[in-house]
Nucleic acid binder design. Sequence first.
DNA 1: AAGTGGTCTAGACCACGAA
DNA 2: TCGTGGTCTAGACCACTTG
Lengths: 249, 249
Amino acid sequence: MQLENNSSIDRHSPVPIYHQIKELIKEKIEKGELKPDEKLPSETEMEDKLGVSRMTASKALSQLENEDYIYREQGKGSFVTPPKMRNSLLSLTSFSEDMEQRGFQPGGKILKSEIIKGNKIVAAELETEPEEEVFALHRIRLADEEPLAIEKSYIRTSYCKGIEKINFTNRSLYSTFEEKYGIQLHKAEKAIEAVPATKVQAKQLNIDAGEPVLSVDQTTHVKGERNPIEYMEAVYRGDQYKLLVQLDR
Amino acid sequence: MQLENNSSIDRHSPVPIYHQIKELIKEKIEKGELKPDEKLPSETEMEDKLGVSRMTASKALSQLENEDYIYREQGKGSFVTPPKMRNSLLSLTSFSEDMEQRGFQPGGKILKSEIIKGNKIVAAELETEPEEEVFALHRIRLADEEPLAIEKSYIRTSYCKGIEKINFTNRSLYSTFEEKYGIQLHKAEKAIEAVPATKVQAKQLNIDAGEPVLSVDQTTHVKGERNPIEYMEAVYRGDQYKLLVQLDR
DNA sequence: AAGTGGTCTAGACCACGAA
DNA sequence: TCGTGGTCTAGACCACTTG
């Protein structure tokens, strides 16, 4: 990798230098200017070429290693992580995003879309007061017209006022959070079980009662907020749906 | 928090100082000596009391923030993350570790424990040559004496020579990697499905054929290595096992 | 021996928050 | 104003890898 002598670093920018270096390298990796397993400039090389201290260069490279863009080997150097090893599975996605990724046409049928008073379970999961109002959105989710899942979402309305007026038939809940309300999703917990379909579920999913389905309870959190924004109880057809997750550390 | 003047830090240990500080604080949080939202010593305080440079103290605190043990606010200080906000779900754990966390006595019964030539599926998942030898470890896993899961692991032997000589009846595979081979696990992908139990599975798990079970295919990676160390096909009793995962971003 | 990353030091200036 | 974390510097010693 070539380093333009001392250009590309703006010492008067409010953006920290190590962050500028990070972005510089990320960009080169994403553009393909840096090939998989290609050696990056060493810390001392950056010291000279970019005119920064070694600790600063080191910080940039350490963080890139944490984010899995590069790997480092003592005595050898820093190298670009080949794409195969990189986090390839999207972690926090909605059904719509998920289906599009898999090449299916997502669709939906609304069962319920209204403000309700949360019941005990919902209140406990959302950490709301028992009488507090929440937005309930129950949908049957389709992939290429076939019913694939039943999703019952309960949403804390204080983060997204007026959400009950939106038609979610073919709209992603998560992209609505992000685009309409500027809400950045942070993390989620899923509790996953294999259970037999109830009669009602079987009818809605067009399968036989007792067939295995994937039951997923999910709590979704927003960046910087202590309380969750969404609690969802979902059921997926066992014969048609595979859940992919990526675990770290 | 009280800091014992300069004790508890061993400057001649091969363990880095920042890591010693991290462990010190983690321990106090886990023991409850540091309460939720309690203020930690500041960086300058650690400089004085522990006799380390500020950068070292800062590194320890930064990493604790990344690991969600503490949160930091400019101008205010560093504080213990309340347990509710903390990542409570271990991400990459073995069955044994998992069961201990849930308060069950883990146990096991070995079905197979030998070096084999990998079949096509295994070779593809482990990215080995089709004729390459792998260590096959098939176990029935027990929780409080009850069969709960069937785990079939295939392990790349080049990372852990001699592993076939170890008795894994009551031993964790992952802690063996870490303690005996010094292998640091990095990340894993799981593909999760709800399927009906086959006759053989039903017998081994002491349930009826056709009952829902959780089928999980997992590929596990090691830090700094491009190829996976383990591919596992596991089946968990649907009525007894819930899989918890934490998703980020 | 030379190059690399891993760690550590003893300073420094800044922006932010609370008093 | 003072204490805090956020960043940065210019050195240093070490262990590891490669020639």
